[in-house]
């Protein structure tokens, strides 16, 4: 079949568009599809994430499986109603609560995608001042240990005092919150 756009090359991409409830079928060649931006949607980069994911999370449902649909779908997010199986198909979360809803299921996925499972980057300042506090203390403790090793005891004493002060701040802040 020839491309519906240029009519020159063979169509290699088949798209089904649903517009106002009506279905439109479109056949495009590679270059026309790319020009239309269809191939990239909704992925950044060009690798087929959806297949990638369902492989990763081990959720390609066996054909003719006896389990009822609800069970095959696995966990469901309490926030947006997305099931874990749906997540595997579209490769996208539905809301921020999905992360907690799917919980441990996500560990291996994150391990494969990322180097580590703990965020060490920027923290929203207003919402998470307590977290910034915690990080600051951790950093000071690390420095304290360093100065003790180097036998810089004056510096160590100074650091210890600052840590103490910050920790008091944390606990009193925590008390007033609760």
């Amino acid at each position: 079949m020839l491309c519906g756009e240029c009519g020159k090359k063979n169509a290699s991409v088949h798209l089904t568009k649903i517009v106002n409830g009506g279905k439109t079928e479109i056949y495009l060649c590679d270059s026309c599809a790319r020009e239309k931006g269809e191939l990239e949607f909704p992925f950044e980069g060009k690798f087929p994430l959806h297949q990638f994911f369902s492989g990763l999370i081990g959720l390609v449902p066996a054909a003719g499986s006896d389990a009822p649909a609800s069970q095959r779908g696995g966990v469901q997010c309490s926030g947006c109603g997305l099931t874990y199986a749906q997540f595997g198909q579209i490769g996208r979360f539905g809301c921020d609560r999905c992360y907690d809803s799917f919980g441990e299921n996500l560990h291996s996925l994150f391990r494969r995608l990322h180097s580590n499972q703990k965020h060490v980057g920027k923290i929203p300042a207003r919402a998470c001042s307590h977290l910034m506090h915690k990080r600051e203390i951790e950093e000071l403790k690390r420095k304290l240990q360093e100065s003790v090793m180097k036998e810089e005891f004056e510096e160590a004493a100074r650091l210890r005092d600052r840590i103490r002060k910050l920790e008091e701040g944390v606990s009193s802040g925590g008390d007033s919150d609760g």
């Binding site: 996208r92 979360f93 921020d96 994150f110 499972q117 965020h119 920027k122 977290l131």
Partner: peptide, 11 residues
């Protein structure tokens, strides 16, 4: 999220 940082639509 304390552990996971900024939560995005794509993992």
């Amino acid at each position: 999220h304390e552990q996971l940082g900024y939560l995005a639509a794509c993992p």
